[in-house]
Amino acid sequence: MTALLSLWRNTFVRRVLEAALTLVGVSVLTFAVLRVLPGDQITASYGIEAGALSPDQLASLRAYYGIDRPLVAQYFSWLGGVLTGNLGVATQSQQDVLDMTLRALPITMELAVLSIVVALLLGVPGGLLAASRAGALRDNGSQLLSLLALSVPTFLVATALSSWLANRFGYNPNGEEFATLLRDPALNLQQMALPALTLGVSIAAPVFQTTRASVLAIRDEDYIRTARAKGVPPRRLQARHVLRNALIPVVTISGLQFGFLLGGAVVIEQIFSIPGIGRQVLLGMTQKEYAVVQSTVLVIAVLFVLVNLLTDVVYRLVDPQARAQ
C-alpha cells in the first residue's frame, strides 16, 4: 500500500496513469454514445428499406457487421484490435481506419499549426500593444476587435469570406480537389489560408485577452519595481522581466487551444472541404461506421493527452518553479 502510494506521488508515473485512465474513459464513452444513438449500420446503409428486410436477412447482416454479439464482447474485441494496431475497417468503403487516419491526421495537424501560428502572431503582439497603454484608444480598439472575433461565429465569417472571394474574383481554391502539402505546396497553402485565418482569428481572441491581462498584472508586481529600482531601462524591463513572466499563462491557453484544434475543426473542415480528422468523424457518425468513430476519437484523445504533456514541458521551460516540482 505504501509502495503504491509513493508510486502515485511520483509525478511522471501519475501523469501516465492519469492519461491511461482518461483514454479508457474516452473509449467507453464513445462506444456507449454510439450504441445509445438510434439506428445502426444496417439502417444507415439501407435507409427506410431496412424495415423491409426479413428477420433472417437482418440476422445475417447483424452477424456480418458484428453487432449481434454482446456489447461487452464488441467493446473488448475492438479494444483488443486497437491495442494490436488494428483500428478496424470502414464497412462501406472497405478502407482501413488506420490508413484513413494516417491520411487525415497530417492535414488536420497542418491546419492546427497554421491556425495557432496565426493566433499567436495576432494575439501576443496585440495584447502587448493593448497593455502598453491600458485604457487608451489602442487598448479599447483592440479589445472591441477581440470581442468581435469571439462573438461572431467563425463559420459565418468563413462562409461569407469564401463566397465573396469566389463570386467577386472567381478565386476559390477550396473548390478544387484537395492537395496535400507534399503533392502541391502552392495549392495546398492557398487552400489552407482561409480556414487557418478563420480559426486563427477566433483563437487569437483568448490569446490576446490572456496576454493583455497578464502583462497588466505582471507590471504591478513587486519584482518589476525592484528591477526599475536597480536602473533597468524600459526595453530590457519589458523583454526580460515582464514578457517572460507574462507568457506563462499564454503557453497554457495556447496548448489547450492546440489540443482542441487537433480534434479537428469539424465545421471549418466541412465548409472548406478539407479532408481532415474532423470530417472523418463526422462521416463516420452519419454512416454509423462504429469502428471509424471509435478509433478516430481515441486517436484524437491520445493526441490531446500528448499535447497536454508537451504543454507541460514547455511550461517547465518558461517557469522555473514548475520545473522544481
Binding site: 508586481e221 513587486d222 519584482y223 519595481r225 525592484t226 528591477a227 526599475r228 529600482a229 536597480k230 536602473g231 533597468v232 531601462p233 526580460r240 522581466h241 517572460r244 513572466n245 506563462i248 518558461v318 517557469d319 522555473p320 518553479q321
Partner: peptide, 22 residues
C-alpha cells in the same frame, strides 16, 4: 534611470515577491 541602482539602491519590503521568479 542612470541614478537608480547606481547611486540609490533600494531594498523592498516583501522578499517573497521582490525577485523575478523566472
Amino acid at each position: 534611470i542612470a541614478v537608480r541602482g547606481s547611486r540609490i539602491g533600494m531594498v523592498p519590503q516583501d522578499p517573497m515577491t521582490g525577485l523575478n521568479p523566472t
